[in-house]
Design a protein around this nucleic acid. Structure first.
Length: 278
DNA sequence: ATGGTCGGTGGCCGA
């Protein structure tokens, strides 16, 4: 099974590219972030025409997450228990959706951007990650051995190698110790970054800002991840970041991140293809 | 040339 995660930065402006990529990459399950659409605006038909079932959670023009799958899509969860909203009173935001696809519990997650270290959005981000950690532990406790994948844009660069120049991030979000600690907590709990071993740094990123020619200058950040429970991580036979998809006009500022599970395609050589794009 | 972008929206905000 081929599982991918991709912050598409508006599904409506990107639908042709996303549909083409789904077919080209032979992806079975795609976790999408930043659809920037309400449910009634989401292009469901474009996915169903390609044989995918769709679960989308979008409240307005901001955020928005989805899972599309051609290997089943069951037990959809919109958000997770106690998911924080922003502000007082807390306004709900569409940043998490879960579904069981091909026997894997998949979450599509769009972690809040902290904006600046002293912005209220930073506390919101840390709180959001803490609650997600607590819920993830509860899911695993309720179902030991559960094959679970937390997929999405974490808006955290966990290691110095995950940005092009640490000096450029002095005093910035994404690399601060509290954010990195919040990310590390998932690994401390036993989740595994299943992409990094197949796409090691330095210089390997998932996101490049549109501004200041960051992509041609190879100045990106690794902030999109697939974190898997050990039982699932053991079944991962390949992974890649498809930076080709960041090229050209009409690209998202994030590249798709792909994970091959179970190795059913090893005999056909598809894994070589996936590794080449890393 | 020391800056260079997008998307959704509605006349700026968010990333």
């Amino acid at each position: 099974m081929r599982l991918a995660t991709w912050n598409v930065n508006s599904i409506r402006s990107r639908i042709d590219r996303v549909a083409a990529w789904l077919e080209r990459s032979d992806t079975d399950v795609l976790a999408i972030q930043e659809t920037k659409a309400r449910d009634d605006q989401f292009p469901h038909a474009r996915f169903t025409e390609l044989g995918y079932e769709v679960a989308h959670h979008g409240l307005n023009q901001w955020n928005g997450v989805a899972i599309v799958s051609r290997v089943g899509l069951d037990d959809v969860s919109v958000g997770f228990p106690d998911v924080p909203g922003f502000g007082d009173p807390a306004a709900p935001e569409a940043r998490a959706i879960g579904a069981t696809c091909g026997g894997v519990r998949v979450w599509s997650l769009y972690v809040p951007n902290g904006r600046t270290l002293d912005d209220p959005h930073m506390a919101y981000k840390l709180d959001w990650l803490q609650v997600l950690r607590t819920q993830t532990a509860a899911w695993r406790s309720a179902e030991p051995g559960l094959p679970l994948a937390l997929c999405g844009d974490f808006n955290v660069a966990p290691q110095d190698d995950d940005v092009w120049d640490m000096a450029a991030f002095e005093g910035s979000t994404h690399v601060s110790e509290p954010e990195r600690a919040a990310f590390r907590a998932f690994l401390d709990d036993g989740l595994v970054d299943v992409v990094r071993p197949h796409a090691p740094g330095p210089g390997v990123y998932t996101y490049w800002d549109y501004q200041q020619l960051r992509f041609p200058k190879k100045q990106g950040m690794r902030i999109d991840f697939v974190l898997a429970t050990p039982a699932l991580a053991d079944r991962v036979v390949g992974a890649a970041i498809d930076r080709e998809e960041r090229k050209g006009k009409g690209a998202s500022d994030h590249a798709p991140v792909v994970v091959e599970i179970d190795g059913a395609d090893v005999a056909t050589g598809s894994i070589e293809t996936i590794e080449e794009t890393a």
